[in-house]
């Protein structure tokens, strides 16, 4: 089977590898996640060694998996909210700005090929950065007692969550010619979906249920607990499918209008 989107994927990957922005963003992401992971470990160590502090914080028992593993992957998923827009902002906005978009659509590619090629390229770069974070697992195994199946699910969850973020970032990039606007738009959509469950506070029970079902945070948190649920994986796949579908429609609309 021939992957029609592969030429676009290859071109995008090359473009990413020569872009200094990507390395700066990756370095910042690793710095922030490393710093926060260090903070989580140090706090856990402090709680473990100081019974009074532990009582003050209301912990009867300290579980490494619950306190360190879950919090680490929660932090990673949260940081991705900020990092992904930086990776996806240029995907289509730059093409439109520089005029290469018209050239791209004149080539024998379907809209789906363009969208999938760009999506997988951005996702591959992000997955590579998440892959670098795999050394955190070694750190946890060396210095603590993590439940490795939980680590596996939480880590897998970060890859699933990242796919949804990239798809939304790509959609935002298709809506504008300005990269900064695309990044802000992606961030606003992601943050909105992340926080929408918190709107359930002023909502009645029925609406609260719907708002929580839409919440990125609620679904991503289940992975960090070591839970792999059809509902959560299905939710992120749904977000990816809808975002990519809408990106295709936006491209189609632009082509038809022209």
């Amino acid at each position: 089977m021939r992957l029609h989107f592969y030429p676009i994927f290859r071109r995008e990957i090359k473009s990413y590898l020569t872009s200094p922005t990507v390395y700066i963003a990756a370095g910042l992401f690793l710095f922030m996640s490393g710093l926060l992971f260090y903070g989580i470990l140090e706090n856990f160590s402090l709680l473990s060694g100081d019974a009074q502090y532990r009582r003050e914080m209301g912990f009867d028992k300290l579980n490494f998996t619950r306190h360190v593993v879950s919090n680490l992957y929660w932090v990673i998923n949260f940081l991705l909210l900020f990092v992904v827009p930086a990776f996806t902002m240029r995907l289509l906005a730059e093409e439109k700005k520089t005029g290469t978009f018209e050239l791209l659509v004149s080539l024998p590619f379907r809209d789906w090929d363009i969208v999938l090629g760009k999506f997988f390229a951005a996702y591959a770069v992000l997955a590579a950065i998440l892959g670098i974070c795999s050394y955190y697992v070694l750190v946890m195994a060396r210095f603590g007692t993590p439940e490795l199946p939980v680590v596996g699910i939480a880590y897998l969850g970060s890859f699933i969550v990242a796919a949804a973020y990239v798809a939304i970032g790509l959609l935002a990039s298709s809506l504008t010619e300005n990269q900064i606007v695309a990044a802000i738009l992606a961030f606003v959509i992601l943050l909105g979906l992340y926080l929408i469950g918190d709107l359930s506070t002023p909502a009645s029970a029925g609406v609260a249920g719907v708002l929580q079902a839409l919440s990125l945070r609620y679904h991503s948190e289940q992975f960090t607990h070591g839970l792999l649920r059809v509902q959560d994986a299905g939710y992120f796949l749904l977000v990816v499918a809808i975002a990519l579908f809408l990106t295709c429609r936006v491209l189609e609309l632009r082509r038809l209008r022209a």
Partner: peptide
């Protein structure tokens, strides 16, 4: 109940 697995660095 959760297991108690403290770690002191």
């Amino acid at each position: 109940d959760i297991e108690n697995t403290p770690v002191v660095l």
